[in-house]
Amino acid sequence: MGKFWSFVFFLVPVLGVGLFVVAMNFHSLPLLNHWFPEDVSASGHVIDQLFMTILVLTGVVFVATEVCLAFFLWRYDAKANRDPVRYMHGSHTLEVVWTVLPAATLFFIAIYQMNAWADAKIRQPKDAGVIVEVRGRQFEWRFRYPGPDGKFNTPDDIHWDTDLHVPVDEEVLVHLKSEDVLHSFFLPNMRVKQDAVPGMMIPVWFRPTKIGSWDLVCAELCGWGHYKMRGRITVQSRADFDAWLVEIANKQHATQADATATADAAKPAK
């Protein structure tokens, strides 16, 4: 029976590694696209690289540990093993090795990630192409652009929600706020995730590199409707973005029923 269990335990590293290999293949079913979502940001590859480095490090340790476990289960199975028991009182060399090696590895990771961390969280860009205020609330995302005067809290602010528009290839600086509880502003394709904290304004920045539309989700369980807190991020060319801003600003400043409303009124009642 003991040998059977050693095989079961051996399956853990085999299946674990297999799962990653299958998921990494973009055409694999049923795990289709369960690897990283498409990276469309300037600094996303840095995060991905860090992830891969740490994955390889932990992966090697994981496989080695699991193989050892299975080997010992098999080799020292009580039924099959007739060798007498040996006692030992520790090995100083071994202890030094297993203390120094992980410490050195952790130290390496700490140094290795410093620049990525500083770029993501400390070195706020001075040349942001667009500043947008993002407010999380139960359960949606609301946005505000500063309008033509470039300042928030003035009458020409442009308000919008749910579908965040930004220009491509420019630094986007987000002023992240919460109107009620903790939320988390998560752009999987930009490799950006930051908690929104009530009472605080937290700057978040990224530089999209591809035109298109991607997910914006809340990554902090914020209440019963957390699952509904979905949005989109639409990356546009600068010209399209400017035109879009003008369009929604004009709608927001409307004093007369817009063209669609008039058309509705004119068409016969259903």
Partner: peptide, 24 residues
Amino acid sequence: RMADKKIVAPVAPSEEMTKWLAGE
């Protein structure tokens, strides 16, 4: 079915007022 016939269409504000309302 008659709601479309009861829409409140505001009187047009002056050009200046339109600008003020747009924050200009």
